[in-house]
Design a protein around this nucleic acid. Structure first.
Lengths: 211, 211
DNA sequence: ATCGTAAATATTGTATACAATCAATAGCTG
DNA sequence: CAGCTATTGATTGTATACAATATTTACGAT
């Protein structure tokens, strides 16, 4: 049958692209966003651009100053501790909610992501390490099956990624953090809540000690 | 000088209005949303309506089925426990983050909201009790000064409000819950973390025991 | 030269027109 | 009558045009 490729709207594509650009640092914090500029850049009209920008604003990645301009959200160093604490609370709930069966069921993906982290670490690609680390933790949250938790975590993770970029991917503890993933998986598989929680707590805390 | 009243855009006003209608139950879960219908209802074009709907979708209050329709988000009863657990995690972090000084500084507003709850309880207006209860807890979170926490809590609270409506505002423990507010304020003022946490935990847990 | 004011310029906000897609209905075929 | 196909109708997606507002530039007064 026909209807081959066209599925997502221009608005969706623009949204996804800008989001990716922000989270990868291609569009950095504080940078101004012009609707017309983006429109000509993407080769579309302003309409889908506007919708994308507004969605990103609601997502927390863009700040809109009404009737004047929009800019990429800029994380403040003072937010580091705040973000870390919220993340800790959500990660602890994640660990508490995870059953060994749920982890087993997704062990393939989890192991692969943990391995990806170590691989990129070994070749010195810190940017990609952080990407895979985020994916690993998001996957853990997904395994809980708690949608409300996932939604909250996903938005917070965006801020975490912005922070990592703002700190220029510096983190002396990165090798140690990454090496903890397999231990965490093991502890979760065994249902050792005590150990899992301890590992996760150390993991998260050390994620924000740089600088 | 001139320029007296006009500040917010139509898009913002529409967004706020629809949001309020959803959270008050005027627009109930599963109800379909037609852009044109809303446009004629608000007396504006489809443009600001579309932007508002998309923002609400990003907020989690509207579900968009691309190229067909949009509908008000419908909370599932199976989500009750999930939402409650996330809320508990965030509320516990809130209590841990609150200093007696921060509470003191905002004691006026907090006391007033607690009193409002009791007043509406006494006159049997359960809908308004829930509204003020939400405001009370949001105010507590605001007092922490943790923006990331506030953002996460605000979105979750929207789901909580939807749940309350879906459950038809039924909750046998409501009087007891409301009566705990002053004790909580006191415990927070004294910096009694132990008691504060215990109170808050009981508070949240009993908020979801109905049905 | 600096400050304030006014014209010019650019950008956002909204309405409208058109195109594309989906849902529903009617009609045809077996 | 069931099931498929085609056509109609309604709704969303995008582009464009215009209006309103903000920013910048130019200019004159002190």
């Amino acid at each position: 049958m026909p209807n081959p490729i066209k599925k997502e709207s221009l608005s969706d594509r623009v949204y996804a692209t800008i989001k990716r650009q922000i989270l990868s640092g291609e569009l950095s914090g504080g940078m101004l966003i012009s609707e017309e500029h983006l429109a000509s850049q993407f080769g579309v009209s302003r309409t889908p651009i506007r919708e994308a920008i507004r969605r990103l604003s609601e997502y927390g990645l863009v700040i809109i100053k009404p009737r004047s301009y929009a800019m990429v959200y800029e994380v403040d160093d003072k937010e580091v501790q705040d973000i870390a604490q919220v993340r800790l609370a959500l990660e602890e709930l994640t660990v508490r909610s995870l059953t060994p069966e749920a982890v087993e069921r997704d062990i393939e993906t989890l192991s692969r992501l943990a391995a990806d982290c170590q691989y990129y670490m070994s070749v010195g690609n810190r940017a990609e390490v952080f990407v895979k680390d985020s994916e690993f933790h998001l996957e853990l949250v997904r395994c809980t099956g708690n949608r409300a938790l996932y939604d909250a975590y996903e938005r917070l993770d965006a801020k975490v990624q912005l922070l990592r970029i703002a700190q220029n991917l510096n983190n002396d503890d990165l090798p140690r953090i990454i090496s903890q993933h397999p231990s965490l998986i093991d502890a979760l598989k065994k249902g050792d809540m005590e150990l899992s929680t301890a590992l996760m707590r150390e993991h998260v805390i050390h994620s924000y000690l740089s600088r």
